[in-house]
Design a binder for these strands. Structure first.
Lengths: 365, 365
DNA sequence: GTGAAAGCGCTAACAG
DNA sequence: CTGTTAGCGCTTTCAC
């Protein structure tokens, strides 16, 4: 066996065991240059003969070089990773948002490190630790189930952008929809159509829910109507159970405003299961305008928010804070009522106005 | 100003400028120990006084230490990152799969580095490069739009598990559902119900589609029935357009098998839009059993595959290859026809048997 | 234009 | 049990 050669079997084992990647050194050796020069060449630094640069590129490609980001970040002490936590990965709106943020980030040379694991408050917090270990330079939270205090704790460690609600802490940037006014608009529209018994299956303590609830209460009380509230979670099942609760109560609503489109879908399913028609018997309004909301079957009237706008705002805000040390802002983006066939005037012209007493239909477990 | 103290303004600036993280050195200094010992203590290595360990832990927590994974991986030369590419993040089934894989990976101390960006073949390939730079030790592809050749190229670089179809290359591990038999079962069931005009809105060249198409053709020809095929993509719109094409053709189907549940939803929407009832006028079968399929409104009969099983199989396979150098396998997991209300016998007992000539209804753009 | 050398934060022998 | 000493792969002065 010649020097430098290795028996085939050994070589194979070598590959298997130390799966060593091709390094800058390998490229340098192959190109007959120093590491430093190869580094410059590959990164497009000035001070490299164009000829040399091209040759280096070819050699690198040929031997399958791939830069080690870990090592690079270590050396430069500045990273390009941004944490991206997604509260409900199965919610299409969250996912649209995540994709948009990811794309925006990529467009300005940041890398999104996404986590699908932010389901509960506990998990979400340990996820933040994990991301910190990846040396992220900032973090974007998409409606994660963190309480304001937890978010504050994160924001104390690095620039933090929360999408989905306002946070009671001046050091976190927030991007939120105009939840309150949106719901107010929905209530007013239903009232103008003649509805008097308007229920709200709300999102409990999920992000943004508080504002939507506030909007509902404000508008209802302004119209002199009694509150019909059911507490829920932002999922299909909450819609189903919300309808069960509402329809078993003494004041059956002629219209329901759901926390979001998913809840609305759950509600519609249940209504149909009970033999009730939408919108003839009950009108429904959702929130978000997920892709399926506009389908012919569902045709759900909903409060639309634009994921692209929000993503752009979030990334712009992050950059402002990172590059210019800007002070955190709270941005509120518009929401618009999108009219579809799930809303119509109530069937009978005469609406029984029940007592003005709030009828709280209780909390879903 | 005392030694060791810093004027407030300067300290603030320091934080702003060099956002330097707390390092092991800082902890060591604060604890009066060496870096090595602190490292051992924090990682739970043997050879550390329990007292010392506890003290180190406290100090670390107090000064906000977070290990630098990049540095660690650099030093150990073995990473714990696994790339996870999601083909269609907005498809609930893909997302369920992704979450399950992520969880399984975490359970065995691997970290999923997920990419939402694998939309087109081009993007997906450059994403692989990006992940390589993160020094992933393996990669799991969830029905990404890669062709077999591209997958092979990836598999040549590192252990690769593809979920969603079989790949014509022995060096990639695959986890796929029994697509062919599933569709055969569906066709047979529809035939047994009396259907003779059974269409297939297929998934074109999306992963797994070929097998489903093969199953459809096999079963139809076995039953002596003519093929009614529409080419599509795996999205809502394909379902809509598929129905438009089918209903405009001379042989209107009494049953449709859709590539997946999303396509089926699109199809149902369109059918209803055209005033047709499901299942009275047209029966429908989907694939995947996404959460919404079981809702009362949709109640979609579908070929169920289990995301958890597939995730477990994928992670187990990856570990086998990583830890034991196992040879790649192609695993096929079962599929079961899930009966719901979208399927019923055809309305009229008499079915016109058209010519046995294949009626290809053309490709959707 | 190019190379040598010094680390980035951490782990892993090897000594004590 | 604890400290010392080398690097991991890369970037970055600083010389030449």
């Amino acid at each position: 066996v010649e020097a430098g050669e290795v028996p085939a079997l050994l070589a194979l084992k070598e590959v298997h065991v130390s799966k060593s990647f091709v390094t800058l050194d390998d490229v340098a050796r192959a190109a007959g240059l120093s590491r430093a020069q190869v580094s410059r060449a590959l990164r497009g630094d000035a001070g490299v003969l164009e000829d040399t640069r091209e040759r280096v590129r070819q050699v690198a490609a040929k031997i399958g070089y791939s830069p080690n980001l870990a090592a690079r970040n270590l050396a430069t002490a500045r990273g390009t990773n941004v944490g991206l936590l997604i509260g409900e990965p199965l919610n299409p709106f969250h996912m649209q948002l995540a994709r948009a943020v990811d794309a925006e980030l990529a467009a300005v040379d940041y890398d999104a490190v996404v986590s699908l694991r932010a389901l509960s408050e506990d998990l979400a917090l340990s996820e933040v630790d994990r991301l910190m270990s990846l040396r992220i330079v900032g973090i974007i939270l998409i409606s994660t189930p963190h309480e304001d205090r937890a978010i504050s704790r994160i924001a104390a460690r690095l620039p933090c952008i929360y999408i989905g609600k306002q946070v009671d802490n001046p050091s976190v940037s927030t991007i939120s929809a105009n939840d309150r006014d949106g719901v107010i608009e929905a209530v007013e529209h239903l009232v103008s159509l003649g509805h008097r018994s308007i229920a709200n299956i709300n999102g409990g303590d999920s992000p943004g829910a508080a504002e939507r609830i506030a909007g509902y209460r404000l508008a209802m009380s302004a119209a002199g109507l009694p509150l019909l509230e059911v507490w829920g979670n932002p999922d299909l099942d909450a819609g189903k159970r919300g309808v069960d609760t509402l329809m078993a109560s003494k004041t059956q609503p002629t219209a329901i405003i759901a926390h979001n489109d998913i809840v609305a879908m759950g509600a519609i399913n249940r209504l149909k299961g009970l033999g009730l028609r939408v919108p003839e018997d009950v009108s429904l309004v959702g929130f978000d305008d997920i892709p399926y909301a506009s389908s012919e079957t569902l045709s759900l009237s909903t409060l639309r928010q634009d994921p692209l706008d929000q993503a752009r705002a979030a990334v712009a805000e992050l950059r402002a804070r990172l590059d210019a040390g800007a002070v955190p802002r709270a941005q509120i983006l518009p929401v618009s009522l999108c009219h579809r066939r799930s809303v119509a005037p109530p069937a009978s012209g005469t609406q029984q106005i029940v007592s003005a007493v709030t009828e709280d239909l209780g909390q879903l477990p």
